[in-house]
């Protein structure tokens, strides 16, 4: 428990700082009240609007932990939303639409996983293909229109309320819990981290990296499908052009804020989810605090730069070098611990 707290402390502190900062500019930010049987207020809004990025961040965390990246999730959202809307549009009902959309997401993930794990194409290159083609495919499904629908059940997915909380908030919280349980209660998490840290050694220890990589990209596709369903339900229509546009970048950012190294290895889904909420709090906060929304991107840019500084291997080496040098001069201690090259 304390280990977990220590792991997510930086993210929690950042979230806290963002919340405090927004509250200073917009005092009513943290107030939550009841309107009928549902909770209302800015925090609830953050939980709802942050849902797509939070969902994407779950899959992205796992992909990045294997030293990969999935650029296609935004486009996959559009495809899955389009598939679901088209199914509803044809009167097949929600019972067919949801499985079809989830299936489309899994299929997209399988494609990415095939390119990465079997053809051994770099992840960034492999997923670029679907990132480019995906929106075309989505438009193909919707025949280029914004496919609107009036299915109340579908709309409920995006804008309904369940037990006081918006359905999208439930979706990412539940998905997060399920994913967290799956990776930590099974051995999936360990094997993913192992492959991300040292693929060669993992293979020699008997880890089936091919199946693992494909699985991870399929999970990412599945998360994108759920996010696509929510966005589509929310606006009661599938917009192949704009659904999930640039959300892959926000998702990667959420993972980076969550402290999972882009070079693979140790990951925390919880920290990525907090990262997603940090991003959404900034988005909502800027709006509420009366800043023009145009500040949003500049703040994001500064945020990315700060994370870069913190994660930079060169800077941390320098810092460690500084620390050891100081320790040496202070205590006359022997050799530094951190050595990049060992004798052969």
């Amino acid at each position: 428990m304390t280990a977990l707290l220590r792991r997510i402390a930086p993210q929690l502190l950042t979230l806290l700082a963002v919340l405090v900062l927004v509250t200073v500019f917009f005092p009513g930010f943290l107030s939550v009240g009841f309107s009928g049987d549902r909770l209302v207020g800015s925090p609830i809004d953050v939980l709802k609007r942050g849902a797509p990025v939070a969902l994407l961040a779950i899959g992205m965390t796992l992909v990045i932990a294997t030293r990969g990246i999935d650029l296609s999730v935004g486009a996959v959202m559009a495809i899955c939303g389009a598939v679901a809307a088209a199914a509803v549009d044809r009167g097949w009902g929600l019972g067919a639409a949801i499985p079809l959309a989830l299936g489309a997401g899994l299929l997209c993930g399988l494609w990415n996983g095939f390119l990465v794990a079997v053809l051994r194409i770099q992840p960034i290159v492999a997923t670029l293909i679907l990132m480019v083609a995906g929106r075309g495919i989505a438009q193909l499904v919707t025949a280029g229109q914004i496919l609107t629908f009036s299915d109340e059940g579908f709309a409920f997915l995006g804008s309904g309320t369940f037990l006081g909380l918006p359905v999208p908030a439930w979706a990412w919280i539940l998905a997060g819990i399920v994913a967290g349980l799956v990776v930590r209660r099974t051995a999936l998490g360990l094997l993913i981290e192992s492959v991300g840290v040292n693929l060669r050694a993992s293979r020699l220890a008997g880890v089936d990296s091919t199946v693992l990589l494909v699985t991870v990209y399929m999970i990412s596709g599945l998360c994108a499908a759920v996010a696509g369903l929510i966005v589509t339900g929310d606006i009661r229509g599938a917009d192949a052009n704009n659904a999930g546009l640039w959300l892959e970048l926000d998702a990667i950012l959420a993972v980076a804020i969550g402290g999972t190294s882009l070079l693979g290895g140790r990951f925390s889904i919880l920290a990525s989810l907090i990262g997603a909420m940090i991003i959404q709090s900034i988005n909502t906060g800027i709006l509420l605090a009366g800043f023009p929304p145009e500040f949003n991107l500049v703040i994001k840019a500064v945020l990315v730069l700060m994370i870069l500084m913190l994660q930079s291997p060169r800077l941390s080496d320098a810092a460690r070098g500084l620390a050891t040098r100081r320790r040496r001069t202070d205590e006359g201690a022997a050799a530094p611990r951190a050595v990049k090259e060992a004798p052969r």
Partner: peptide, 15 residues
């Protein structure tokens, strides 16, 4: 032909 074929064909060419 619809404009989305551009994206799909470009995706295919990329692949």
């Amino acid at each position: 032909l619809s404009s989305w074929w551009t994206k799909i064909v470009i995706g295919l060419l990329l692949f």
